[in-house]
Design a protein around this nucleic acid. Structure first.
Length: 536
RNA sequence: GGUGGGUUCGUAUAACGGCUAGUACUCAGGAUUUUCAUUCCUGCAAUAGGAGUUCGAUUCUCCUACCCACUACCA
């Protein structure tokens, strides 16, 4: 049994966008599969015809792809949608709605061997029974006691059962939960768990109305048919684990039953409770990997659109509830595959920390080359009406009037601002003045620094810069410029801030030498003239 | 209500039953710097409570408290 191939699956329901907790579950499944040289399967569990949301499946696929989680098998194997079975995909199709023909006979098999029965209660009848129980302050459970008072194949005469089966379509197949039986289970993360069946109910396994199984049946049948070796899923499934164990027993599949691992939930950063899809925008951070627009046209932000790198997002997510056993925090997907281990997965729920997510992005941003960041910055510049021309080998050029800059100029800017940014979009916010001549000056800063005793010296420093000989680099300029100011015994800070106000419109930010070396002598002169005209 | 799961600084976590309970994020202070940012240094801050086992418990057992999930013809 230990020799069998590792095959795990991620089986989301297309009832909406996948949220980050779902991505984490998919990630852990993926890491486990790859580490064991096995298969990662993406199966779509669309057995609830009422809750189907158009676009959700596509969203799930795109989100996983963005994260670099590519299924070996499933609806999106190797980045291509698989619809039918083939030699390469003998287990297809992977959408449960396309497998509906499979389930009925398994449900019937269970009825035949006494593990299930036909139930003829209509949804309305059950609702009434529940309401009645609630009125008495009780909770109705469909179990070994109550089922004998209801209409089903255990209480009705055989002919009546046959007639209802043939003539009505409201019936279901329900699991016949055994009485007073202790189910002993083992979880890879939580250890040994025991539950008495008397606390469990008779779950619906198959619905005649839409000829579809419920989660429980579909799940067990498909996991068996697809030869799943480990089931790694969310903690919300732990209460139904006894039923699943019993189902494997009922089918006689216990010898190939997968091993189970139930992952703790992702909790919201403040207060208690799990991170839910609705918390999204209220809390000021995305809960979805990608932006999602619902049927009402309301948008929920996504990590991708917010400017997160997929590597940062995945790394952050991996560390939420898992650790490598040492102090390492930075992992590529491949490194995660190598380091991952289910027994290092935390049992308790993990509160998501938005600050840490940002920190990860900052770290990954710094790891990236200036060229890569420049390329990522281009769309942001375009949105601000900046035209970028040329190539990385071309000479540097800047035309502030026409808002036209060479690629190398942009790269110089990126090199200057990358240590101050969390997201690529921050490059612009940090120093718009490296692309646009300041049109206005920060009032507070101007009031504080633009005084005759500072402005005069600042203008003289500008003249010094204009007359500076040799290549105009920050390193070459810095020393002589400071020496120039110092030799005249001017207050360094005040003069510098005055100069920065003229060049940047604000008194704080990048180093003067860096700004000057970037925008060039001509633009420096233009900006000094402009501030004289505006502030006098 | 019932069943199951969980509980180490604010957060994520580390600690064969054995040093002063470590690290990262956040926050605060300091150094460097023309400002801001970076960087570096320092600091704040935790074993939910109570019994028990033990020479010794964050770690094992039990009880209590609190939190979470489940309790649908949803997954």
């Amino acid at each position: 049994m230990g020799e069998r191939r590792t095959r795990v699956r991620f089986a989301p329901s297309p009832t909406g966008p996948l949220h980050m907790g779902g991505v984490r579950t998919a990630l852990y499944n993926y890491l486990y599969a790859k580490q064991h040289g096995g298969d990662f399967i993406l199966r779509i569990e669309d057995t609830d015809s009422h809750r189907f949301v158009p676009g959700a499946e596509e969203y799930i696929i795109e989100a996983l792809r963005w994260c670099g989680i590519v299924p070996d098998e499933g609806v999106d194997a190797d980045g291509k949608v698989v619809e039918t079975a083939s030699e390469r995909h003998p287990h297809a199709p992977y959408r449960q709605s396309q497998r509906r023909g499979i389930y009925r006979r398994y449900a019937e098999e269970l009825v035949a061997n006494g593990w299930a029965y036909y139930a003829f209660d209509t949804p309305q009848e059950l609702e009434a029974v529940r309401a009645a129980a609630e009125a008495k302050g009780e909770t109705f459970i469909y179990n070994q006691v109550s089922r004998m008072q209801l209409r089903n194949s255990l209480t009705l005469p055989q002919e009546e059962t046959a007639r209802l089966l043939a003539e009505t379509t409201d019936w279901t197949v329900r699991f016949r939960m055994p009485e007073n039986t202790v189910v002993a289970m083992d979880d890879l993360i939580r250890g040994h768990i025991e539950v008495n069946t008397d606390t469990l109910d008779d779950k619906v396994l198959w619905k005649r109305a839409d000829e579809l199984p419920t989660y429980h049946l579909a799940n067990i049948v498909d996991d068996h048919l697809m030869e799943i070796s480990e089931v790694i899923r969310g903690e919300e499934w732990l209460p139904s684990l006894p039923l699943h164990y019993l189902l494997y027993r009922a089918f006689g599949w216990e010898d190939t039953m997968p091993r189970f691992a139930h992952l703790s939930l992702l909790l919201k950063p403040v207060g208690n409770g799990k991170l839910s899809k609705r918390d999204g925008d209220k809390l000021g951070f995305p809960v979805f990997p990608l932006q999602w627009t619902n049927a009402e046209g309301e948008k929920s932000r996504g990590y991708r659109e917010d400017g997160y790198f997929p590597e940062a997002f995945v790394n952050m997510l991996a560390m939420l509830g898992w650790n490598p056993g040492d102090d390492r925090e930075m992992f590529t997907l491949d490194e995660l595959v190598a380091a991952f281990s289910l027994d290092k997965v935390q049992k308790a729920g993990a509160k998501f920390n938005p600050d840490k997510a940002k920190w990860y992005n900052r770290e990954y941003l710094r790891l990236k080359s200036d060229e890569e960041l420049t390329d990522a910055f281009l769309p942001v510049l375009a949105a601000h009406g900046i035209t970028v021309t040329g190539c990385y080998a071309c000479p540097v050029s800047a035309d502030f009037a026409r808002k036209e800059f060479s690629k190398n100029y942009v790269k110089n800017v990126v090199a200057l601002v990358k240590m101050r940014a969390t997201f690529v979009a921050d490059f612009w916010e940090t120093a718009p003045y490296l692309f646009e001549t300041p049109q206005a000056y920060n009032e507070k800063d101007a009031a504080k620094f633009w005084k005759p005793e500072n402005a005069g010296p600042a203008l003289e420093v500008a003249d010094f810069i204009a007359g500076f000989e040799g290549p105009l680099t920050a390193a070459a300029l810095e020393g002589p410029m400071e020496e120039f100011i110092r030799s005249r015994e001017w207050p360094m800070g005040k003069v510098m801030n005055c100069l920065r106000l003229a060049l940047a419109g604000v008194s704080s930010g990048l180093g003067i030498a860096d700004i000057v070396a970037t925008i060039g002598k001509e633009e420096v002169r233009a900006r000094m003239e402009r501030i004289m005209n505006v502030l006098g």
